[in-house]
Design a protein around this nucleic acid. Structure first.
Lengths: 174, 174
DNA sequence: GATGATTGTGAGTAATCACTTGCAAAAATA
DNA sequence: TATTTTTGCAAGTGATTACTCACAATCATC
């Protein structure tokens, strides 16, 4: 990966996250990255290839987050880490996660499969804690953290920290 | 409102909801509506005006939904109606609501203000039912219906009906 | 240091973009 | 019925789109 290649990825990430994929032209990306437009196509083939390169890195980052939760043996720890996921995301990575959420709508990427390991870990955790409907509890909690994540990245007026604390108490993991 | 004007709105709604606002060209809208492209600009000024016309109708429809909840006097009824909101949306209106959700990301429309009356109604309901943190409960529930709505419109594999029933029992409103 | 591969540029390309204009048909008003 | 207003179309407009290509500069390998 050359230096200019990374410049392109970084510029594309920022623009895609801010303006959206379709609203961002390759010429804008090139200008922001400080390279010629042709270089984008030399390295990434086409505009979609550029997006895919960003998405691939996204998949990697997300898996890292999930692994940290799945590895947790204490069921309460699993739930706590899940709830704290949105508030723990690095602000330097905001653009990155924003793009992921944006693309779920812009390109109709389901995202269900990626959540499966997390869903299973949560289901097990709730089962160990003798919840009556562990699968549903898992789905519900994922729905919540997805919503809190959305609110955080969209700059909603929602008090995310307060809500997180509230959830931690509700699930009695703290 | 002429017949062709409605044809344009209907075509634009379908295309914007499916492909997104930026990915849909005015020529595609015209072709789908069976009118000349110029007519779009005659009636709506520009592409954004066309979108705004759709959005205005959306605001109206949403307010109707919320009024039905806010008017409810029984606190449990307020919560029940809120939870059942996503499963009760008319399938004929799917494109419509999908566009609303899509635009929240594509154009960064906050949507917080629109939720305020609903949030207040829920807060009051939870207070009447002696919940310790009525505001937070309201925020949480709105987060949930937003998430369920997203899942429904995105065609997620999530079992929406089951989750709705689960919540109705969790909140003891049924 | 010659050679071949990789990295990079800048000026192209046709197609499509949102939008305009001139003019006719239709409708409303007188 | 004459006149004005509205509705509609077809053929444009310049700008921008994603993308290509010929050609340099830089690089690694022998």
């Amino acid at each position: 990966m050359t230096e200019k290649q990374e410049k392109i990825l970084q510029a594309a990430l920022q623009l895609f996250a801010k303006e959206g994929y379709h609203a961002t032209s390759t010429s804008k990306v090139a200008k922001k990255a400080g390279v010629s437009e042709g270089l984008i196509f030399r390295h990434f083939g086409n505009k979609e290839g550029l997006l895919q390169a960003i998405l691939d890195e996204g998949e990697k980052k997300f898996k890292e987050l999930v692994v940290n939760i799945v590895m947790e043996s204490d069921p309460k720890g699993v739930i706590q880490k899940t709830i704290e996921m949105p508030v723990n995301i690095d602000k330097a990575d905001y653009d990155f996660w924003k793009l992921q959420f944006k693309l779920k709508w812009e390109l109709e990427v389901s995202g269900d499969k990626k959540m499966e390991p997390l869903h299973m870990a949560l289901t097990n955790a709730f089962r160990k804690l003798n919840y009556q409907h562990p699968e549903l509890e898992a789905s519900l909690l994922i729905l919540f953290i997805d919503g809190i994540g959305s609110a955080t990245l969209k700059g909603s007026s929602l008090n995310v920290n307060e809500l997180t604390q509230f959830l931690l108490h509700k699930y009695q993991v703290i």
